[in-house]
Amino acid sequence: MIDLAEKSTGVAAVEIRGVHKLYGSLHVLHEMDLVVAPGEVVCLIGPSGSGKSTLLRCINNLEKIQAGVIKVFGELIGYRRAGERLIETTKRETCRARQHVGMVFQQFNLFSHLTALQNLIEAPTRVQRLPREKATEYAKELLGKVGLADKHASYPAQLSGGQQQRVAIARALCMRPKLMLFDEPTSALDPELVGEVLDVLRDLANNEMTMMVVTHEIGFARQVADTVVFMDEGRIVEQGPAAQVLDSPRHERTKRFLERVS
C-alpha cells in the first residue's frame, strides 16, 4: 500500500468558520464551524435535507457560500481574500484550486462515453497535463487497488453499481487529492454491493487519507470515523469522537435520529 495522503503539520485539512448558505430566501446552512485535521475521517450524519451534502459541496466550491470562510489546507477555493472581503476568483483559478480535492457522488457520475481507464486519466492528462503513459500507469495501479484491474476497458454501462462507484473513487484518487469528499457514496447501491465500496473507503482511511463522508451507514461511521458530526435543519447539532456521538449522544435530537436509523 502506498501512502496516498500528503502529510502536513500545523495547518488544518479543512477549516470551516461561520459559514452561511442561502438558496434565495431559504437558509440551508447556519453558522457552520468545523475543523478537520489532516488524516482525520469525519462522517456527517443526519436526516435528509439537513444540509450535509450542501456543506460538502461548499468545500470544493460546487456551491457558493453567502457568509463565512472555508479553507482547505490553508487555502481558499473559489475566493481570494482582500482585507475584510472574500472576492470570487475567475473560473480558471477556481478549477486550479479544487484539483486537490477529490469528490465522489451518490450517482457515481462516471463519464459514460469513456472506458474506466479513460475516465481515470481524462483529468490528470488534460488538467494537470501529466504525460499519458505516466497517468495510465498510475490509473492502472489504482484500478488494481479497488479490485477492478480487469475492468479497465469496460464502459460504465457494463459495470455494476458497486464497480462503477469503485471506478469513481479511483478517478478522484488519480488526481492525487489531499482531501476526499464522499457524498452518500453507497446510497444508490443494492444492499449486497454496499460492502465492496465501504471496503475501499476503509482502506483509504487506513492509509491516512483525510476524508469527509456523508453517510447513512451508522455501522461504518462507528468503525472508521474519528469524528462524527450530526446535522439537522442546517445546523451542526453535535460533533465529537465517533463512539461518544453514536453511543452516548448528548442531544435529544441525535438520540431520536439514531434510534430510528439503527
Binding site: N60, L62, K91, R92, C95, R96, R98, Q99, V101, G102, M103, F105, Q107, N109, L110, F111, S112, E122, A123, R126, V127, A168, R171, A172, M175
Partner: peptide, 22 residues
Amino acid sequence: DHGQREAAEALGMSSWLMTRRI
C-alpha cells in the same frame, strides 16, 4: 445528465474542456 458536468467540475476541468471532452 447534470451530474456529468458536476463530476467534470469537481475534477478541476475548465468550462471549455468540460464542454469539448465531456
